[in-house]
């Protein structure tokens, strides 16, 4: 295959990675930005979404699309509920203290992981894609489902952008993000906002996981890579910045796809880590972040 089509294929693969990463990282970024909580368990909400997607999709007989659509709704709702519960039981009791919540979410990580191991098992399990369509390009054929993942992520990110910038809920979230105390002085129930944001962040990770399980298999240890990459994206993009998150996810996803294909996956990881180091040194609030008050 000539360079051009090869590059196109690598870019498409990178875009799929970027799409899922953007959704996952957006969840982490929202929690980080609004609550100042470093949610180390974020990857486990991703894993939980994938595991639940397998459970829900296998519970439905018939066409795979039925189970997949059910998983697309059920998995994020259950994961959101679990996040809400953990916010009430753990984070709220710690007063959202930035240091204490890091330790607490590490604990949550292991609890969720071990629960998944106990009830789901150690096997990696596939989820059938809702449809098997191959888009035939002049140079190669490409998975229609992967293109669907890219489009679905774009739609969800646009929806998140609309909610954050054009609705009262989004305004309340942004006000809480910029100044918690003043937000309270203007009638914003910060505790409830935090609970909602934590659940929403986990739900975004779960949706991303449901979208990816027909491509990758569901496994109880699958939360580690998304967590690491999400942190990289959030650091580069900036705390709580939707625009920064999307741009950083594109940067990391595309470079991962392209550099991995033409050079090596290790070089892609090295460059991403180098970029994080540069951002931390020269612009700690991230490329599009705002210093917190």
């Amino acid at each position: 295959m000539a360079f051009g089509p090869y590059f196109l294929l690598a870019s498409l693969e990178g875009l799929v990675t970027a799409a899922v990463l953007a959704l996952t990282a957006l969840g982490l970024s929202l929690v980080f930005g609004v609550m100042r909580v470093v949610n180390v368990a974020h990857g486990e909400f991703f894993m939980l979404g994938a595991v639940l997607a397998w459970a829900v999709s296998t519970a439905f007989a018939g066409h795979p699309s039925v189970g997949f659509v059910a998983a697309l709704f059920v998995a994020p709702l259950v994961v959101g509920g679990a996040a809400l519960l953990s916010e009430r039981l753990v984070l709220r009791r710690l007063g959202y203290d930035p240091e204490a919540t890091i330790v607490a979410t590490i604990g949550m990580l292991y609890i969720i992981q071990q629960l998944a191991l106990t009830f789901y098992g150690a096997d990696a399990r596939p989820v059938q894609a809702p449809f098997n369509v191959r888009i035939q390009l002049p140079w190669f054929g490409y998975s229609g489902y992967k293109l669907f993942v890219i489009v679905a992520a774009i739609v969800l990110i646009l929806a998140a952008w609309f909610v954050l910038t054009r609705t009262k809920i989004g305004l309340v979230m942004r006000a809480t993000q910029y100044d918690r105390e003043t937000a309270q002085a203007f009638g914003i129930p910060v505790d409830r906002v935090y609970a909602g944001v934590f659940a929403l962040g986990a739900m975004l990770a779960a949706v991303a996981a449901v979208l990816i399980v027909p491509i990758q298999q569901a496994h109880y240890l699958m939360g580690r890579d998304p967590l690491l990459l999400s942190f990289i994206v959030v650091i580069i993009g900036g705390l709580g910045s939707l625009r920064g998150t999307v741009i950083a996810a594109l940067l990391i996803g595309l470079s991962d796809g392209i550099i991995s294909v033409f050079f090596s996956p290790t070089l892609a990881k090295m460059l991403a880590t180098g970029l994080v180091a540069m951002v931390l040194v020269f612009r700690p609030q991230g490329l599009f972040g705002v210093p917190a008050r």
């Binding site: 305004l171 942004r174 910029y178 009638g187 914003i188």
Partner: peptide
């Protein structure tokens, strides 16, 4: 209603959005 020392505006929000926060409070 409270006007804090140093104003404590939501500086990244627009004037209209800051007013909207005040309006929503009650």
């Amino acid at each position: 209603a409270y006007v804090p020392q140093g104003r404590r505006l939501f500086s990244e929000l627009t004037v209209a959005e800051n007013l909207e926060i005040g309006l929503m409070a009650r």
